[in-house]
Design a protein around this nucleic acid. Structure first.
Lengths: 320, 320
DNA sequence: TCTTGATCTGAAATGCGTTTCACCATTTAC
DNA sequence: GTAAATGGTGAAACGCATTTCAGATCAAGA
């Protein structure tokens, strides 16, 4: 394959001039420009982007760390990131981590090794210490409150929104409220746990450990929640489910087992995914596509350390 | 940041020796190896991968073209691809195309410009002509039957499987069978259409255009299918739905409207997604994770032009 | 007329690691 | 005892495009 030197020779100019033509630099006479164009055409020359990247020191590649590709929450986030990437002429390198720390580290190392210009971490397992080791190598953007840290973030206040959601359920007459969550560790989960415990205190309700269901990520995870629910002597009357898809699973199972919603069990979802609308699920809208967009923009923003809080909105439908 | 020259100087060796140490080449004496290691440690040296890629001519990056990230079919495919990528130390560059041709071309151009070593196209809009322009630049792998073309593929025989599925419905007493599909164009869709038409001929049933529903991709797309169904004078008694998630949407809607399944409407899904199990949907199992794995392996296989047919399996449950 | 400033152009340096090749020193083999 | 491997090392070429810098030309303004 031809390289820039070949083109220069063929067009009878220097490589500098060829480079200028390639990059639309103005100071090239029309005749030389034309000669270069012809040479490029004739040889079907294509730039070697690796050389460009080495030279420029950037790759127009942004890394995205997500635990699962196959999940509507991350799917929507990806959609937002991806749309914005296209607009800005960046490409995305996907790191599907399954929440394994060393896969997250792999992504961070790509940043260190300059193969990506920035890294968006949608959800993480690794500690802050690990992340902060790598901030020197390029922008890192988190989807959780990172104020006070050296990385940018777009986040929602999970404490506040969880607390509000709990209050909403309480106002609707519920005392025994449980919740379903993806995993117990994780910053967002911790904030929610805190909100939950403080809310219980506020309404003088007891903390019942088995009202909390973790590992609730997918539609099918609703099955075991309902299973456990039916086995309880004193089940909760309302459930905060941190993913609409899981809420949908729970509702579907409940219908099958004749548990009426919201009468016997009130369900409040999260995200306002399309499925929530179809199934009339009362939910907390989280503008994931918008968040994705902002995450991306923060990633390519040279000024580090911006923080943006996104507001959520309660959507009342028929499951509470 | 330090580069290989700095390390060489610091360790008192040549850059060649440093390179040997970095790449675990055997011919380096233990003392020099140690000196290099120390220099690397002290300066916190990291290789610039762009330089490595330029030099080696490969990037260990594989492009993946998918129309939507936010879809369980492609989610599972991605999962398979991604798992295998991790095993083989490759990273994935994601091209979310929304079925726009020029985004597909962008991906092909990355191959041409050597920023990716190979390209996996999970579903496409562009024509064969376009793809064949780029086969010279690196392996391209398709998820559709590409025998006779110059690209590898892992595929299922959609004609055969669709025909079989139709026969299954027919054997279960159905004459008026419709189907739901993602889009009407697309190789797979064409094959299915052919199977559908020939099957109708075989059973001497009329071809009713509005028994075919396209743009059926997501759960919520089930709504409008059911809507249209209820407006028909003579609706089909069975529906082949090329995605379990859409089937789930249809079933959910039918329950709401009091349409009993399978009595009034038989539903047969595709893929055997987890949701199909929960909702007891009779479906055609497509081993997407396995297909993803094979696609990846074909992408990194230097021998071009391998073709692998994957078998599907009918899973009988309660919706037919 | 002289000075700026804008327009062109190319040699050389730069980004950075890998690989080839030549060469020397030991071993091992016959 | 001599030929042939094997171990060890570095200079230089290579992969390829961008950018800096110096120099040349030409038109416009003082």
């Amino acid at each position: 394959m031809a390289n820039i030197k070949d083109i220069a020779k063929k067009a009878g100019v220097s490589v500098t001039t060829v480079s200028r033509v390639l990059n639309n630099h103005p100071y090239v006479s029309e005749e030389k420009r034309e000669a270069v164009r012809r040479a490029i055409e004739e040889t079907n020359y294509k730039r070697n982007l690796n050389a460009v990247h080495l030279s420029k020191g950037e790759t127009f590649l942004i890394g995205v760390v997500i635990p699962f590709t196959n999940h509507p929450y991350f799917g929507l986030l990806m959609e937002g990131i991806s749309n914005e990437a296209v607009k800005n002429n960046y490409k995305l390198v996907l790191f599907q981590t399954n929440y394994e720390v060393n896969r997250e580290v792999e992504a961070l190392k790509m940043l260190q090794h300059k193969q990506i210009d920035a890294l968006i971490i949608c959800s993480r397992s690794c500690s802050w210490d690990v992340i902060e080791e790598y901030v020197q190598y390029g922008p890192i953007v988190l989807c959780e409150d990172s104020r006070g840290r050296k990385v940018s973030s777009t986040f929602i206040d999970h404490y506040k929104s969880f607390f509000n959601a709990l209050e909403y359920l309480h106002k609707n007459g519920h005392q025994k409220i449980g919740y379903c969550i993806g995993r117990k560790s994780g910053t967002n989960s911790k904030q929610r746990e805190k909100a939950y415990k403080e809310f219980l205190k506020k309404i003088h309700a007891p903390y019942v450990p088995h009202y909390i269901f973790d590992q609730c990520l997918k539609f099918e995870d609703g099955v075991k929640v309902v299973q456990q629910l039916t086995e309880m002597d004193d089940p909760p009357t309302a459930l905060l489910v941190t993913s609409d898809i899981v809420a949908a699973g729970i509702i579907t199972c409940c219908k099958e087992k004749g548990i009426s919603i919201p009468e016997q069990l009130a369900i409040m979802g999260f995200d306002n995914q399309p499925i929530a609308k179809i199934m009339h699920i009362t939910t907390l809208e989280i503008p994931l596509v918008e968040i994705g967009k902002k995450l991306f923009l923060q990633a390519i923003d040279k000024e580090k350390n911006s923080h943006e809080e996104i507001q959520v909105k309660l959507i009342e439908r028929q499951t509470v």
